[in-house]
Computed example of a mutant assay.
Amino acid sequence: MAASEQFSVRVFGGPTALIEYGGLRFLTDPTFDEPGHYEGPDGRPGLTKTAPPSAKPADLGRVDAVLLSHDEHPDNLDHSGRALLADVPLTLTTPSGAGRLGGTAKGLETWEAVDLPRPDGAVVTVTAAPALHGPEGAEKATGEVVGFVLTARDLPTVYVSGDNASLDAVRQVADRFGPVDATVLFAGAPRLKPVFDGALLVLDSALAVEATKILGARTVFPVHIDSWGHFTESRDDVVAAFTAAGLADRLRFG
């Protein structure tokens, strides 16, 4: 089977996408709730979901593993997403997240890798990549976050950024794995005014362009660009930024 037939991405809204890779099916940050408001913990700002997903968990079919950037925010793991984890054989996430979730969750330290068997007898390697959810020093407030790199002997290298705002983290991925063939890149320029004085919590469109250049990525699947009130940029902003940079032909919206 050709590599193009072994890799595809379907996007459902927010950060949620189904990646088919080497006969395995990976789901990123599952968010399948209907629109609504989520109260923040300890008086912190809440988050509002503004649009429904384009599919329901029952429509997904088999999911072999969830790639969960972090479990602490509802725009990355909502009520429906948490319920879905019970039916998935493996959830890869942060070490602290795995401790909170229990069940089939496995925490990965940065650059730690796991090999998952493919139906054809080969393996897919999933490697944990660095990520920073906000400006420098944000970890104490926003918690641990992880990205992922998917590799296989006969397939494109795919980087899933997770909720990352740091180009330095992207450079580290490029140094180890670049050029990266494709990336599922979280963007949307989310901001919460009381948090870090409104600093970016994830990449904006201009930084997504820079990340693409750093990675040398030929194909970019933008996610995390719709369906939530605190996202300050949309698909149109992503298209405009990539068009201005002469990279619009690399965009795919699944």
Rank of each mutant, 00 (worst) to 15 (best):
S4Y: 06
P15D: 13
I19H: 10
F26C: 03
T28Q: 06
H37D: 09
H37Q: 01
Y38G: 02
P41S: 04
R44Y: 02
K56L: 14
P57M: 05
A65F: 08
L68E: 03
L68H: 05
H70F: 08
H73E: 05
H73A: 06
P74G: 05
N76R: 00
D78C: 02
D78A: 02
S80E: 15
G81D: 12
P95C: 13
A98E: 06
G99T: 09
G102H: 05
G103R: 14
A113E: 12
V123E: 12
V123S: 14
T125C: 12
A129L: 03
A129E: 03
P130D: 05
L132R: 15
E136H: 02
A138S: 15
R153L: 11
D154W: 01
L155V: 07
L155F: 11
S166K: 10
A169F: 01
A169H: 15
R176P: 00
R176G: 03
P179E: 09
P179Q: 07
P179G: 04
D181C: 05
T183K: 09
L185Y: 11
A187I: 08
A189Y: 04
R191G: 03
R191F: 01
L192Y: 11
F196K: 10
D197E: 13
A206T: 11
L207T: 12
V209S: 10
V209E: 07
A211S: 08
L215N: 09
H224N: 11
I225N: 10
H230R: 04
F231S: 04
V238N: 08
A241N: 04
T243V: 01
D249F: 06
R250F: 11
G254K: 10
